[in-house]
Design a protein around this nucleic acid. Structure first.
Lengths: 197, 197, 197, 197
DNA sequence: TATGAATGAGCCTTCATTCAT
DNA sequence: AATGAATGAAGGCTCATTCAT
């Protein structure tokens, strides 16, 4: 029995299904997502999905985690350069980063994250596990800003602005990236100023 | 036949049903809302709802509009005092206003607005009408900021931050209102600085 | 609104569905009974059944009650003659009655009663309501014997024998009615003897 | 190749699986029994069960046989003392035996026997083989009473009473063992009286 | 023989919508 | 306008059984 290998396989397939599910959610939304869709897009039968996930909810949770991981990676990859010590340079750097992400990361995908979160508001157990996962991952993303601003609240506010813009864009509101970038910088600077004192 | 009166009646009842629907959506979310729920909470039969709304979607659109109107009124009422001319005073005023609203307006309710929006992402025709309504109403709210900042983008960004925070709070993230208010002010000031030049 | 009439209608239809269900259970058994079967045999759509019964279980409970009522009526009708005061005559009377019932009442139908009971053994909530109903109805049937024998236990034992025979017969075991009747009488007499003392 | 041994092994494992299945049926009932349950409780994979049994039904038949055998052994063990020749002593002996069995043999287990039987009522082929097995085994048990009473019917009736009581008890009806025993004796005596003539 | 992933038919249940009254 | 019974499509989930390894 080579269970070591088999377990890995199973894990990989769960991941595969989760990612396919994510795509489907982006396409059709949570409510319209059916297990049949998932099965079909994975070239599996409906019953097979249930060999990997207990039910639809746990599949969604898994897809949600995969999405958050993706978002986090996206932030980290682009950020890996280095943290700056000069406030001006930092502001410049992050303003560029965020406007870049806002520009390139599929808005709809990030928006899904909130769609999933919101839809779960009415299901205690789902909500609990999703917000848990959400906080953990966003915590990591916010870490950098927390250090930069020396304030958790400010970090939240900046990220909230970013997320808000993501949603606006996802629902079809348009704005100039250049302006966004400049204002990001302005804001970051104003938030870092306190640190000097 | 006093049809004039009757037409009015019908409008009023549509309004009534929309508001009841809104309450229900706040309670149970969009997905769990059934026409039976609506009928019951309006003391009507299921079939009767269809005398007022063509189908579930148009009921939701109507509820969505009612919600937006409510939000707008809420902003306007609190704002009606007067617009300030001194930048410092304006920043103070709006920081107070927003943190007040963030604090008192039921987060979940405002969050619903986005839940509805997001859920509709996958339904072209719904999306079209909802974003239309959304833009119109938010346009009015943003008007003040646009004037203050002399920039549409800045106005959007401030509002986006506000909405992002609403969502964060709705999913259970907590932060101090005092800090939020101070940072709001800081940000508004940094955004208005340009105007001086 | 003539609700009085309508409510009656609804009650009658529930009854009708319950009875159709009973027939189906007799034909196909509990496990093989599908809501589709029920709907079809009632000339209704599947969804309509759910306008009358919350779920399959409550339909089964209703059918069970209907069956018990039927059994009870069967006993009572045949018994209505009068209760005898002479022991010999009583024994004669009841022996005749029981062998008659055993002979004419569809064994399979009575057996269903136990099939339903047994299948519910693993579902606490079902079990509770079914045994409750069962005890109430059998209590009425047993009442006569309790009086005759002046003993609850004896009444149970006689009825248990009857039910056991019903099951035996339902699973294909055959025996002579004449002998059964004679032995019934013998047994009843032996059970009543004590009372003389 | 020592196939002789292997065949024995296979037989033994079938027996083992049947017994485990029996336990599971007692726990969860027939309807809720899944092949997965069986496999798990045998420390086997689902597929492996099918190396021993053609399908679920034949597994159930096997478990049913195992149960009947168990019942029979139970009766025989307790009975092995010897058969009495004095009617009074016989009655005493059997009354004790039956009330003892009724008391100690897990009611639910015996009840399962009838549950299995009844559930099979709707499956011709199952029914045929199960009733066959049932008759054979009960035939052996009834043998003693047949001799004692000199009547097959009386034997059936006594056993039917016993089985009925088993079911009553399994569904939660309670009665005093002492009374049961006394009445058993009374009944046996009344049934043996004829033989004197 | 053992495994366990894959299958697919089947069932219960929900719910928006219609329509006769 | 109001009613509410009827509809039927759709979806989540289960499970006996098969089969490649």
């Amino acid at each position: 029995m080579n269970t070591g290998v088999k377990v890995l396989d199973k894990q990989e397939r769960k991941k595969y299904i989760s990612e396919k599910t994510l795509e489907l959610i982006s396409e059709k939304g949570l409510t319209n997502l059916t297990m049949e869709d998932v099965a079909f897009s994975c070239n599996l039968s409906k019953g097979s999905i249930y060999n990997y996930f207990k039910n639809k909810n746990s599949l969604i949770v898994s897809a949600f985690s995969a999405l958050l991981e993706k978002v986090q990676n996206f932030f980290e990859e682009n950020e890996s350069v280095l943290s700056q010590d000069c406030a001006e340079a930092s502001a410049d750097f992050y303003a560029n980063l965020y406007s870049e992400i806002l520009n390139t990361f599929p808005s709809k995908e990030l928006m899904r994250l909130f769609e999933i979160l919101m839809n779960s508001t009415h299901d205690q157990s789902m909500m609990k596990i999703l917000t848990q996962t959400f906080k953990e991952n966003y915590g990591k993303i916010l870490g950098k800003f927390e250090k930069l601003f020396n304030s958790k609240t400010k970090a939240f506010m900046l990220q909230a602005m970013f997320d808000g813009l993501v949603i606006y864009r996802a629902v079809g509101i348009e704005f100039s990236n250049e302006e966004i970038k400049n204002n990001f910088k302005k804001m970051i600077l104003s938030f870092t100023e306190d640190n000097k004192n």
